[in-house]
Design a protein around this nucleic acid. Structure first.
Lengths: 194, 194
DNA sequence: GATGATGAGACGTAAAACGTCTTAGTATCT
DNA sequence: AGATACTAAGACGTTTTACGTCTCATCATC
């Protein structure tokens, strides 16, 4: 779907803001880095820097969930699905160097993207990508609720790790899921007789 | 000699330009990073960014030669001194991450600091730090000449490595020193009967 | 209480980044 | 060859940011 040039530009945005941080990047930097003229940039992303970063965030988000989905699509039951999702997502977040760098240099902006401003989209995209997997075990309406709940939990525990549980560790995540997540959905489960 | 605050500020300059590159750093960044107000910054380094980076370069240069001196001050003869200096300096240059980063992002500025603009000072500082060691083996006037020659050679081979010799390797540097450096100084050596 | 150094921030100027627009060059298709 | 579509380069006026200087309130030390 995405044009090759668009990919090229977003790659450049990523490289630029890995090198200089979001606050320091200019449109000219991105144009130079991507080998595209500023005029073309504005044609492709009318709105300037905001739109560019927005597009990049969206792409990264989709990559994030795509990677996640391949890790969890072969689960056998709902509990396993939830645990795997939570663990994989947490680990992916912790391993994201780009995120870590931005968290260090511009914590405010990153927090905004993980909470007030960005969470709704994260949940939206996450629902698109992951709800189908949950649909095997739950009615659609509840799949969406589940994805939302898990998104919030994972992000919360990522931002403020608990001393008691570690969602990056299945041994720790499973009891947590059993205690706090499953009870709200378990009784709604479809029969899994296939 | 250097005030604690001055050290603090120069550390901040270093961190800032490690993070953003020289071209992207602002005085405000440095003030914030060092926890010092902009007014104080200008009081301590009147002249702004140029003076700040100049001061940092000087400090780094002195650190460079200080580290070098501790590595070579116990040599027994002139050949050994020269070889050790050349090898250690080359390795130090190659291991300098700060330098590598700046070389990648702003090659022009770095080259200037290693050649036209910066070489004279490098030679000056190097002479202050290293000539005393050579004085044990050579008359003072020739010590200075030696340091200058070595500085130029090391930098040249660092910037444009030769396929034939590697000044970072004693096995390779020693024959080179014997062939091209020692002959110009050897016959001037003092008797080393102490 | 005086002294000296600092942080916070206002100020005008200089520099830069912005977004728009024009121009010229180059493929592609007719 | 001519028409079309797309691009890089860069000029432009505007807006934003950084600069360097300055004032003033604060706070430690004497």
């Amino acid at each position: 779907m995405a044009g090759a040039q668009e990919t090229q530009v977003l790659d450049a945005v990523k490289r630029c803001c890995a090198r200089w941080g979001v606050a320091k990047v200019t449109i000219d930097d991105i144009a130079t880095e991507s080998g595209v003229s500023r005029a073309t940039l504005y044609r492709m992303f009318p709105g300037g820097k905001d739109v560019l970063f927005e597009a990049l965030r969206l792409r990264e988000l989709e990559e994030f969930f795509t990677a996640m989905r391949t890790d969890v699509e072969d689960v056998a039951d709902l509990e396993e699905l939830i645990v795997r999702c939570v663990v994989v997502a947490t680990r992916e977040l912790r391993a994201d160097q780009h995120l870590a760098m931005m968290m260090a240099s511009e914590p405010g902006a990153v927090l905004g993207q993980l909470t007030v401003e960005g969470l709704p989209r994260i949940i939206r995209v996450g629902t698109v990508f992951l709800a189908p997997l949950a649909d095997r075990f739950l009615p659609r309406r509840h799949s969406a609720r589940l994805v939302e709940l898990l998104s919030r939990l994972v992000i919360s525990y990522f931002l403020a790790p608990s001393a008691r549980i570690d969602l990056g560790d299945p041994k720790s995540a499973r009891p947590f899921v059993r205690a706090f997540v499953l009870p709200a959905f378990n009784h709604l489960q479809r029969s899994t007789t296939s």
